[in-house]
Amino acid sequence: MSIIIKNINKSFNQVIAVNDVSFEVKKGELFGLIGPDGAGKTTIFRILTTLLFADKGFAKVAGFDVIKDYKKIRSNVGYMPGRFSLYQDLTVEENLTFFATIFGTTIEENYDLIKDIYIQIEPFKNRRAGKLSGGMKQKLALSCALIHKPKVLFLDEPTTGVDPVSRKEFWEMLKRLQQKGITILVSTPYMDEAALCDRIALIQNGKILQIDDPKEIVKHFPTTIYDIKANNIYKLLLALKEYKHSYSVYPFGEFVHYTDKRDAFDTKELFQFLKDKGLNNIIIQPTETTIEDTFMELAK
């Protein structure tokens, strides 16, 4: 196991940030912590990277205890925090050299590992980090987190606020790093990125809701979801919430995702109900459960 975390608790004043969290990440695995702002993701990262003590519980990273062997952990992991934390007044190259030096290595020694990523920002190597675009900052931060060839890589919300194209490219980079044998723990609020992980933990309000591989996790959803559409989505939402058998009603892309309290139900009856509410062009059809549906059901 690359990461073992057992019954970890952490509170700040009265707020419980991490509530009895346990999970394990295998060597070479790409493991996702999936949850919104305030779920406790960053606190877990800070405990695992030895920047914060847990109140209770125990954790090991790359075989080392986070308290006793904290120095060994620091030389064996790479950490990319959620907030850009490189030196804004140093250039791209200076930042990278700096991180290589404090870890006792050189850019040349591990160039292979970062080549893929660094090559995209190398044309700007004399630019100050503060003057880079969001996407370039992200690539530099990842290069700096990798320059000492860590065994485990921690990425805290690397794609938040990043557009879909850059997000896609970033995940392709992660997949390539994984193939080089690096264990990766990554957090994200984007549920679509969960599908790209080997296994995921859904987390909210400091508690793990479920751990499984992305394909399996949707099987925890208890019932069939229906895609429903009509000429006016707002009126459709109101009507569905009013329907006496409705269990959950959520806008979901071009459709509304609807589940019914009954195990089996006749969609014709619902169709008629919506029609009587003055809605037109009604479509009701069963659909596949997504990770986001599962998350919402578990988080309820």
């Binding site: 606020g161 609020p189 707002y234 919402m296």
Partner: peptide, 20 residues
Amino acid sequence: GGVDPITRRQFWEMIYKASN
């Protein structure tokens, strides 16, 4: 950005309402 999926949807219901 970063808001949980349920609240994100409640937010959009508020948008629909305003638009309505």
